[in-house]
């Protein structure tokens, strides 16, 4: 009985986290389209609900009532598993995101490694979908995304090492608290830029959306998907984008901490600060989508391996030697 109540309590907590995440994913899709339209001097979705806020809801309803078509020559089990994997991986990562010093579902020691691991698993949904479709365009998209995401993960990993050198702990709350005096975006600004660009590549956002480049590959790995399964890919993708924004906010923008530690700012709940920072990063994501043309594949690989990886490695050496020389290495 005791176990049961414990389980119910946890389920309640999880729902309390996941439902807002899903709702905000729907809202963020609307925001993405509005920002995109704003840059191109269009209106964007403005019909359904006030300011078109309910547009994503309408889209979701449409997807739910559409028929799910499973190609006859596809590998059915993996074909159905692929969107489920994408969606699940995008949602389980939220377990470790701290919304304040105490409001975190799982305050584990290796929080940042967990985030990194889950975001690197995200490639499987795409590969499975692309391969199981048994069709040329999805397959090409899957192959592209496999190479792309593995490449950019490397530089994200090295950037995380930079931050960890300054913190001395893998716990996400420790990382946030270590930024009390100065956000890491100031001393590690080049790393923040590289992290932002790598996050774009990791989430397959323009200008790195080669796995689903519509001009060449129809819709890439999603070509054969329809109805609710397509919607799950789509939701998982945006949940991943939000997650990357949250990761950027925690690593570089001080997470749930208020920008200035003075009276009127400290009244605002810390979760609001985190959400505001995530939104700021997301608007940057949306602006990039609107203003930058798509990269060519060899340019993408060159950028990842020949520019970002050496740069971030050099920065690790710099950070480490600076911290060591001035005796600032965090010890405990």
């Amino acid at each position: 009985m005791e176990y049961l109540s414990l389980v119910f309590q946890e389920v309640y907590k999880i729902l309390f986290l996941l439902v807002p995440v899903l709702v905000s994913v729907a809202m963020i899709v609307w925001l993405d389209r509005r920002v995109w339209a704003f840059v191109q001097k269009r209106q964007g979705p403005n019909v359904v609900g006030p300011f078109g806020l309910l547009q994503s809801l309408a889209d979701a309803l449409k997807y739910i009532f559409k028929e799910i078509i499973i190609p006859s020559s596809s590998n059915k089990v993996i074909f159905i598993l692929a969107p489920i994997v994408t969606m699940t991986l995008a949602l389980i990562a939220w377990a470790v995101i701290p919304f304040s010093a105490t409001q975190v579902l799982a305050d584990i020691n290796v929080g940042i490694l967990y985030l990194f691991a889950v975001s690197s698993l995200g490639v499987y949904g795409i590969i499975m979908g692309g391969w199981a479709s048994n069709s040329k365009y999805p397959f090409l998209g899957a192959i592209r995304s496999a190479a792309q995401m593995v490449s950019y993960e490397v530089s994200i990993g090295v950037i995380i090492i930079n931050v960890l050198l300054c913190v001395g702990s893998l716990n996400l709350n420790d990382i946030v608290i270590a930024q009390q005096n100065m956000w890491f975006v100031i001393p590690l600004f080049p790393m923040f830029v590289i992290f932002f660009i790598s996050a774009l590549a990791e989430t397959n956002r323009p200008p790195f959306d080669l796995p689903e480049a519509e001009a060449e590959l129809v819709a890439g790995y999603q070509t054969e998907y329809s109805g609710m399964m397509y919607a799950m890919f789509w939701l998982g993708e945006y949940a991943n984008i939000l997650l990357m924004c949250a990761m950027g906010a925690i690593l570089f923008l001080g997470g749930w901490m208020s920008p200035i530690d003075v009276y009127p700012f400290t009244l605002v709940p810390s979760a609001i600060w985190l959400i505001l920072k995530i939104l700021l990063l997301f608007i940057l994501f949306a602006l990039v989508k609107a203003i930058v043309p798509r990269y060519r594949y060899d340019q993408l690989m060159r950028l990842g391996w020949k520019v970002f990886l050496p740069l971030s490695l050099i920065w690790v050496v710099l950070t480490a030697s600076y911290l060591f020389y001035f005796n600032l290495l965090p010890m405990n």
């Binding site: 584990i108 020691n109 490694l113 691991a117 690197s120 698993l121 490639v123 590969i127 993960e153 893998l170």
Partner: peptide, 24 residues
């Protein structure tokens, strides 16, 4: 926990992706 996470990152996140890549 560290070994577990490194196992996920290195083997599942990178090595197995390359396996899949080659096999496909």
């Amino acid at each position: 926990e560290f070994l577990g996470m490194i196992m996920l990152i290195v083997y599942v996140g990178a090595v197995a992706v390359l396996f899949l890549f080659v096999v496909m």
